[in-house]
Design a protein around this nucleic acid. Structure first.
Lengths: 224, 224
DNA sequence: TTCGCTTAAATTGTATACAATTATACATTG
DNA sequence: CAATGTATAATTGTATACAATTTAAGCGAA
């Protein structure tokens, strides 16, 4: 029934993305039991790619799969998000620091372009676009760090941060603040200033965390 | 042909473990092309569980899978390990800090038992057992942190640290030092002293890193 | 010989069929 | 009526069959 995103990727990948976003967008609520047959029919594919996708989602921590029992959606709790921010504060600092040393001119251009787009969509008040750009911005920095462990780690539970971003950037005041902080990080990178990059990154996450702490009153729930 | 570890788990899980350890033990060298047919025959199963295992291994970063091309083993470079230690220094500090607040009496007993075993196998000079105990020790602390993101993150690329541990703990002098540091962390946890726990963890990883930096002259190679 | 095209083999991607296990419903018995 | 055991249905686990794609080989012409 529902159309799957792009066509050029493998079905398995598309199925994975489809289920992932469905979970993150709350279409599949925490605790919901995901049967392979249901997903197959819903997405118009066979069970094989669905199974592979579910196994990957289990690795990402989005679902829990028990043998002969099936998959259930795992919720992201408030505490999870708080923990993520504590962790990110450390890791993003490392990433920014290393990126300052290794970032290429092309990547700097991409970051500049990204920030320009952020300014554009901020004017429009388009939160969804801002969220995606924010996501891209950080991905660019991870990549520029030239550290495979960093990329793997931050990519592996990327959805957690995505969820947190979604919650946070709905507030346009926070979005503006984030934009300023992004610019600060960008400047540190252009100047190849490791310390400033790390400090800016920490300040950025710290502010994001503080904002989120204020916003988080009725966000996620845990289904342990 | 080759027997797979336990019997009660699903084939898919067993296949996953089998391939994982084969890669970590160097049986499947970096760059090696893993065809599903070969793995199927080798492990005496069909392609289905093999495919699911490969997809998970891709998420772990141990192999790279390209559509219609298959999976190749990704090597762990020296730099990867160095990066891991930099990251771990931050995350283990968080984990230890949180564990000091949340650790249960049962977990403290388990840690005590673990350390006792470490002492025993250190006497015997059994490096392999020491490595596994070291792995268990840290897993216990992650678990005690009561943070799902921490557990997910550190579990997700656990093999990296495992690889590093294997390299490091071959040196019995390092093993002894590690044992002392573990005891220090354990004491911090029993005293529920967050600051001491974090500081001990950082010191532990820092020492491990320093030792590894000295040892690492001809370890891993990268196959990008 | 070498370049290029065609074709065949090998490999992965997907779907389906079958086996094993679990959950559910219903009947039987205390 | 409750509890339990059995049978049936539903769901997952695994294997195999088929389609799509890539790689390589073979063949021919310049």
């Amino acid at each position: 029934m529902k159309k799957i995103a792009q066509a050029h990727n493998s079905l398995q990948t598309q199925v994975f993305r489809a289920i992932e976003t469905a979970i993150l967008d709350g279409v599949f609520a925490p605790g919901k039991n995901l049967t392979e047959a249901m997903l197959s029919e819903e997405l118009g594919v066979s069970r094989t790619p669905v199974r592979e996708a579910l196994r990957q989602l289990e690795f990402e921590g989005l679902v829990r799969v028990e043998t002969h029992k099936g998959a259930v959606v795992v919720g992201i709790s408030e505490k999870d998000i708080r923990d993520i921010y504590a962790i990110r504060m450390q890791i993003e600092a490392l990433a920014a620091q290393w990126a300052a040393q290794n970032v290429t001119e092309e990547e700097l251009s991409a970051l500049q372009e990204n920030i320009a787009m952020q300014e554009f969509y901020f004017q429009r008040g388009d939160c969804r676009q801002l969220r995606d750009l924010d996501s891209d911005f950080h991905t660019l920095i991870y990549t520029a760090s030239r550290s495979r462990p960093i990329c793997l780690m931050l990519g592996s539970f990327h959805h957690y941060t995505s969820k947190a971003r979604s919650i946070a950037l709905v507030d346009l005041r926070r979005a503006q603040s984030a934009l300023t902080e992004h610019q600060e990080i960008y400047e540190a990178l252009t100047g190849r200033d490791c310390e400033k990059a790390a400090a800016s990154a920490i300040r950025h996450i710290e502010k994001a965390r503080a904002h989120l702490a204020a916003v988080l009153t009725d966000a996620g729930e845990n289904k342990d």
